[in-house]
Simulated assay, not measured.
Amino acid sequence: MPYEAPTHSVERSLRATLGARIVAGIDEVGRGAWAGPVTACAAVTGLRRPPEGLTDSKLLTVKRRTVMAEQLTGWVTDHALGHASPEEIDELGMTAALRLAAVRALEGLSVVPDAIILDGKHDYLGNPWQVRTVIKGDQSCVSVAAASVIAKVYRDARMAELGMEYAAFGFADNAGYPSPVHRAALEAWGPTPYHRLSWAYLDSLPRWRHLKKVRQIIDEADEAEQLGFDF
Protein backbone atom coordinates (compact mmCIF):
# COMPACT_ATOMS: atom_id res chain seq x y z
CA MET A 1 0.00 0.00 0.00
CA PRO A 2 1.42 3.43 -0.95
CA TYR A 3 2.29 5.77 1.88
CA GLU A 4 3.84 9.18 2.30
CA ALA A 5 7.39 9.06 3.57
CA PRO A 6 7.97 10.77 6.93
CA THR A 7 9.59 14.19 6.89
CA HIS A 8 11.47 16.49 9.24
CA SER A 9 8.73 19.14 9.18
CA VAL A 10 7.90 18.84 12.89
CA GLU A 11 11.56 18.68 13.84
CA ARG A 12 12.18 21.84 11.78
CA SER A 13 9.18 23.55 13.36
CA LEU A 14 10.49 22.86 16.86
CA ARG A 15 13.86 24.20 15.85
CA ALA A 16 12.27 27.37 14.48
CA THR A 17 9.76 28.04 17.28
CA LEU A 18 11.64 26.78 20.33
CA GLY A 19 15.23 26.97 19.20
CA ALA A 20 15.42 23.20 19.75
CA ARG A 21 18.68 22.02 18.23
CA ILE A 22 18.30 18.45 19.50
CA VAL A 23 14.92 16.83 18.99
CA ALA A 24 14.13 13.27 20.06
CA GLY A 25 11.24 11.26 18.67
CA ILE A 26 9.66 8.73 21.02
CA ASP A 27 7.44 5.79 20.19
CA GLU A 28 6.41 2.79 22.23
CA VAL A 29 5.38 -0.80 21.63
CA GLY A 30 3.66 -3.36 23.82
CA ARG A 31 0.94 -1.14 25.19
CA GLY A 32 -1.92 -3.51 24.39
CA ALA A 33 -0.11 -6.79 25.04
CA TRP A 34 -1.07 -9.27 27.75
CA ALA A 35 2.52 -10.23 28.45
CA GLY A 36 5.95 -8.64 28.36
CA PRO A 37 7.19 -5.11 28.99
CA VAL A 38 6.11 -1.89 27.38
CA THR A 39 9.14 -0.61 25.49
CA ALA A 40 9.91 2.95 24.42
CA CYS A 41 12.63 4.15 22.08
CA ALA A 42 13.99 7.68 21.96
CA ALA A 43 15.70 8.49 18.67
CA VAL A 44 17.63 11.58 17.62
CA THR A 45 18.01 11.81 13.86
CA GLY A 46 19.10 15.33 13.04
CA LEU A 47 17.85 16.54 9.66
CA ARG A 48 19.65 14.05 7.42
CA ARG A 49 17.90 12.08 4.70
CA PRO A 50 16.53 8.87 6.28
CA PRO A 51 16.93 5.35 4.86
CA GLU A 52 14.61 4.74 1.94
CA GLY A 53 11.35 3.06 2.96
CA LEU A 54 11.29 4.31 6.54
CA THR A 55 7.77 4.43 7.98
CA ASP A 56 5.70 3.23 10.92
CA SER A 57 6.92 -0.22 11.96
CA LYS A 58 3.41 -1.67 11.62
CA LEU A 59 3.43 -0.89 7.90
CA LEU A 60 6.59 -2.92 7.25
CA THR A 61 6.92 -6.67 6.85
CA VAL A 62 8.90 -8.50 9.51
CA LYS A 63 11.83 -8.96 7.13
CA ARG A 64 11.84 -5.34 5.96
CA ARG A 65 11.40 -4.06 9.52
CA THR A 66 14.39 -6.08 10.73
CA VAL A 67 16.60 -4.81 7.92
CA MET A 68 15.40 -1.25 8.53
CA ALA A 69 16.21 -1.47 12.25
CA GLU A 70 19.76 -2.54 11.42
CA GLN A 71 20.11 0.42 9.07
CA LEU A 72 18.67 2.83 11.58
CA THR A 73 20.90 1.90 14.51
CA GLY A 74 23.88 2.97 12.41
CA TRP A 75 22.15 5.98 10.89
CA VAL A 76 20.55 7.78 13.86
CA THR A 77 22.58 10.36 15.74
CA ASP A 78 21.61 8.77 19.04
CA HIS A 79 19.03 6.36 20.39
CA ALA A 80 18.17 4.49 23.57
CA LEU A 81 15.53 2.05 24.78
CA GLY A 82 13.57 2.08 28.02
CA HIS A 83 11.22 -0.51 29.48
CA ALA A 84 8.55 -0.87 32.13
CA SER A 85 8.06 -4.39 33.41
CA PRO A 86 4.75 -6.24 33.78
CA GLU A 87 5.04 -5.76 37.54
CA GLU A 88 5.48 -2.01 37.11
CA ILE A 89 2.54 -1.87 34.71
CA ASP A 90 0.36 -3.69 37.26
CA GLU A 91 1.48 -1.42 40.07
CA LEU A 92 1.45 1.93 38.28
CA GLY A 93 -1.07 1.59 35.45
CA MET A 94 -0.26 1.99 31.78
CA THR A 95 -0.03 5.77 31.60
CA ALA A 96 2.57 5.95 34.37
CA ALA A 97 4.36 2.90 32.97
CA LEU A 98 4.63 4.59 29.57
CA ARG A 99 6.16 7.63 31.22
CA LEU A 100 8.61 5.43 33.13
CA ALA A 101 9.72 3.62 29.98
CA ALA A 102 10.07 6.88 28.03
CA VAL A 103 12.05 8.56 30.82
CA ARG A 104 14.39 5.59 30.98
CA ALA A 105 14.91 5.84 27.22
CA LEU A 106 15.62 9.57 27.46
CA GLU A 107 18.07 9.00 30.31
CA GLY A 108 19.89 6.52 28.10
CA LEU A 109 20.68 9.13 25.45
CA SER A 110 24.13 10.65 25.39
CA VAL A 111 22.60 14.14 25.11
CA VAL A 112 19.58 15.82 26.68
CA PRO A 113 17.02 16.72 23.99
CA ASP A 114 15.75 20.29 23.76
CA ALA A 115 12.35 19.02 22.62
CA ILE A 116 10.51 15.73 22.23
CA ILE A 117 7.99 14.49 19.69
CA LEU A 118 5.56 11.91 21.08
CA ASP A 119 3.50 9.68 18.85
CA GLY A 120 -0.23 10.06 19.54
CA LYS A 121 -2.38 12.76 21.09
CA HIS A 122 -1.61 12.31 24.80
CA ASP A 123 1.40 13.85 26.50
CA TYR A 124 2.27 11.19 29.06
CA LEU A 125 5.68 12.78 29.73
CA GLY A 126 4.83 16.29 30.88
CA ASN A 127 7.27 18.53 32.74
CA PRO A 128 10.14 19.22 32.58
CA TRP A 129 10.25 18.19 28.91
CA GLN A 130 9.19 20.32 25.97
CA VAL A 131 6.76 17.94 24.26
CA ARG A 132 4.95 18.06 20.93
CA THR A 133 2.36 15.33 20.39
CA VAL A 134 1.68 14.25 16.82
CA ILE A 135 -1.12 11.87 15.85
CA LYS A 136 0.35 9.19 13.58
CA GLY A 137 3.75 10.69 14.19
CA ASP A 138 5.25 7.28 13.47
CA GLN A 139 4.16 7.78 9.85
CA SER A 140 4.83 11.51 9.45
CA CYS A 141 7.93 12.33 11.57
CA VAL A 142 11.33 10.87 10.75
CA SER A 143 12.54 10.65 14.36
CA VAL A 144 9.33 9.02 15.60
CA ALA A 145 9.27 6.54 12.69
CA ALA A 146 12.85 5.56 13.49
CA ALA A 147 11.95 5.08 17.15
CA SER A 148 8.93 3.00 16.14
CA VAL A 149 10.98 0.54 14.09
CA ILE A 150 13.81 0.17 16.60
CA ALA A 151 11.44 -0.36 19.53
CA LYS A 152 9.29 -2.90 17.67
CA VAL A 153 12.20 -5.01 16.45
CA TYR A 154 13.87 -5.03 19.87
CA ARG A 155 10.73 -5.98 21.77
CA ASP A 156 9.71 -8.66 19.26
CA ALA A 157 13.17 -10.22 19.61
CA ARG A 158 12.87 -10.15 23.39
CA MET A 159 9.45 -11.79 23.28
CA ALA A 160 10.80 -14.46 20.92
CA GLU A 161 13.46 -15.23 23.54
CA LEU A 162 10.73 -15.64 26.15
CA GLY A 163 8.92 -17.86 23.66
CA MET A 164 11.74 -20.39 23.91
CA GLU A 165 11.08 -20.60 27.64
CA TYR A 166 7.27 -20.71 27.28
CA ALA A 167 6.75 -22.29 23.87
CA ALA A 168 3.02 -22.99 24.28
CA PHE A 169 2.20 -19.27 24.43
CA GLY A 170 3.46 -18.48 20.92
CA PHE A 171 5.35 -15.36 21.96
CA ALA A 172 7.59 -15.59 18.89
CA ASP A 173 4.52 -15.02 16.72
CA ASN A 174 2.20 -12.90 18.88
CA ALA A 175 4.80 -10.93 20.90
CA GLY A 176 2.56 -11.23 23.97
CA TYR A 177 -0.51 -9.75 22.27
CA PRO A 178 -3.92 -11.47 22.25
CA SER A 179 -4.18 -14.45 19.89
CA PRO A 180 -6.02 -17.81 19.89
CA VAL A 181 -2.79 -19.66 20.71
CA HIS A 182 -2.01 -17.27 23.53
CA ARG A 183 -5.49 -17.55 25.03
CA ALA A 184 -5.49 -21.35 24.80
CA ALA A 185 -2.16 -21.53 26.62
CA LEU A 186 -3.47 -19.21 29.33
CA GLU A 187 -6.53 -21.38 29.83
CA ALA A 188 -4.37 -24.50 30.11
CA TRP A 189 -1.37 -23.24 32.06
CA GLY A 190 -2.28 -19.88 33.56
CA PRO A 191 -0.16 -16.72 33.34
CA THR A 192 3.62 -16.83 33.24
CA PRO A 193 5.85 -14.54 35.32
CA TYR A 194 5.87 -12.23 32.30
CA HIS A 195 2.11 -11.64 32.19
CA ARG A 196 0.33 -8.52 33.36
CA LEU A 197 -1.94 -9.56 36.18
CA SER A 198 -4.14 -6.46 36.26
CA TRP A 199 -5.39 -7.01 32.71
CA ALA A 200 -9.03 -7.90 32.00
CA TYR A 201 -8.19 -11.14 30.15
CA LEU A 202 -8.01 -12.88 33.53
CA ASP A 203 -11.71 -12.19 34.10
CA SER A 204 -12.56 -14.72 31.38
CA LEU A 205 -10.28 -17.44 32.79
CA PRO A 206 -12.15 -19.04 35.73
CA ARG A 207 -9.19 -21.18 36.84
CA TRP A 208 -6.87 -18.21 37.07
CA ARG A 209 -8.96 -15.12 37.78
CA HIS A 210 -8.01 -15.31 41.46
CA LEU A 211 -4.54 -14.18 40.40
CA LYS A 212 -5.78 -10.84 39.14
CA LYS A 213 -4.32 -7.77 40.77
CA VAL A 214 -6.81 -4.91 41.08
CA ARG A 215 -5.56 -1.36 41.21
CA GLN A 216 -7.55 1.28 43.01
CA ILE A 217 -7.54 3.75 40.13
CA ILE A 218 -7.80 2.76 36.48
CA ASP A 219 -8.22 5.53 33.92
CA GLU A 220 -10.16 5.13 30.71
CA ALA A 221 -7.07 4.67 28.58
CA ASP A 222 -5.88 1.81 30.80
CA GLU A 223 -9.27 0.11 30.58
CA ALA A 224 -9.03 0.20 26.79
CA GLU A 225 -5.54 -1.29 26.96
CA GLN A 226 -6.75 -4.11 29.18
CA LEU A 227 -9.27 -5.05 26.52
CA GLY A 228 -6.36 -5.67 24.17
CA PHE A 229 -6.39 -2.56 22.00
CA ASP A 230 -3.02 -1.35 20.69
CA PHE A 231 -2.88 2.37 19.98
Rank of each mutant, 00 (worst) to 15 (best):
R183F: 06
L186S: 06
S110N: 05
E165Q: 15
D156T: 14
V111H: 00
L197G: 01
L211H: 07
M164K: 14
H79I: 04
R65C: 13
H182E: 04
S85R: 07
T7R: 04
T61N: 11
A42W: 09
Y194D: 14
H195K: 03
R48W: 03
E4W: 00
T55K: 10
A151G: 12
F231T: 15
K152H: 08
A146N: 10
M1H: 08
A172C: 02
T66F: 06
V134Q: 00
V38I: 15
G190D: 09
A96G: 04
D222K: 02
A167E: 13
K58M: 05
A147M: 10
R48N: 13
A175M: 09
R21K: 14
V76E: 05
G108I: 10
M94C: 03
A16S: 15
V67K: 11
T61V: 13
D230T: 15
K136A: 10
D138N: 03
Y177Q: 09
D78V: 09
H8V: 08
D219Y: 01
Y3V: 02
V144A: 04
A16Q: 14
E88Y: 00
L118P: 02
Y124W: 12
V44H: 01
V23N: 03
G36S: 05
A115Q: 06
L125M: 15
A69K: 09
P180D: 13
Q216H: 08
V142I: 14
R215V: 09
R132M: 01
G108N: 09
T7Q: 05
A24P: 04
R158E: 15
Y194P: 01
C41M: 12
R215G: 11
T55Y: 06
I217H: 08
A160H: 13
V76D: 03
F169T: 02
V214T: 14
V103S: 10
R64T: 15
P51K: 02
R49M: 14
G228I: 12
